[in-house]
Amino acid sequence: MTPHDSDHDELPAHDELSARLRALPTERVPPARVWQGIAAQLPGQAPAPAVAARTPAARWPHRHRWPLRVGLGMAAALAVLMVVPTPIPQTPAPSLLQRQADAMAGEYQQAIAALPSADVTDEWRPALHELDASADTIRAAIAENPRSRYLLGQLQRTYALRLELTQQAVLSAGLPT
């Protein structure tokens, strides 16, 4: 006996069920109010007046206004930002190390000014210009890293070497120091 044979044996018991299934309508149509609710939710469709009173938009009219309110709020915030002057970024106060470097540079300028003014020969100029460029580079590095004591020491050594070379250049020109 196959499994299909047992199904055929039970067919008379299911005749009543089969008859009830055949009696059901082939198509079930929802009530008209359901179709009106569906039509109201479709884009570009105007809901029927009877349905409009039951839609969420009719019960809560402020729901469709929130995009307008958000847009107006954003426009107002942007207008405030455009009107209110932005503060000019202030440079931070110089650190202790930067003030020491400035004081050192002032002392160096005074020491150079105290030397007799003489034309330095061409053999000394490249070295003196190199030391001046090194001092400028060290000052820029101190501005970027205002807590580096090492840079302050390097600046001090560069100024001392520059003064020593200037004194030697003046002596070689035959002028007293």
Rank of each mutant, 00 (worst) to 15 (best):
M1P: 04
S6Y: 09
D7P: 00
D7Q: 06
H8M: 07
E10T: 08
E10A: 09
H14T: 13
D15Y: 15
L17R: 13
L17Q: 10
A19K: 15
R20F: 00
R20A: 11
R20D: 01
L21A: 05
A23E: 09
L24C: 06
P25L: 04
P25N: 03
T26P: 04
R28G: 07
P30C: 12
A32L: 09
W35I: 11
G37V: 05
A39C: 03
G44K: 00
Q45R: 07
A48R: 11
P49V: 02
V51G: 02
A52Y: 00
T55F: 14
P56K: 11
A57R: 06
P61F: 08
H64A: 03
P67E: 00
L68I: 05
V70W: 13
M74L: 13
A76P: 08
L78K: 03
A79I: 01
V84L: 15
T86A: 15
T86D: 14
P87I: 00
P89L: 09
Q90D: 14
Q90G: 07
Q90N: 02
P94Y: 08
L96M: 10
L97V: 11
R99I: 12
Q100G: 01
Q100V: 07
G106H: 11
E107H: 14
Q110R: 08
Q110W: 00
Q110N: 04
Q110P: 01
A111N: 10
A111F: 12
A111T: 04
A113H: 06
A113N: 12
L115W: 00
L115K: 00
L115V: 02
D119A: 15
V120Y: 10
T121A: 14
R125D: 01
R125Y: 04
A127Q: 12
H129N: 11
H129F: 05
L131P: 01
S134E: 12
A135Q: 10
A135L: 08
D136N: 13
I138V: 12
R139T: 02
R139N: 08
R139Y: 01
A140L: 11
A140F: 02
A143T: 06
E144G: 15
N145H: 10
R147D: 06
Y150P: 08
G153V: 06
L155I: 07
L155T: 01
L155N: 09
Q156V: 05
R157N: 13
Y159E: 12
A160N: 04
R162H: 10
R162M: 06
E164D: 05
Q167H: 04
Q167N: 06
Q167S: 02
Q167K: 07
Q168K: 02
V170Y: 13
L171G: 04
S172D: 08
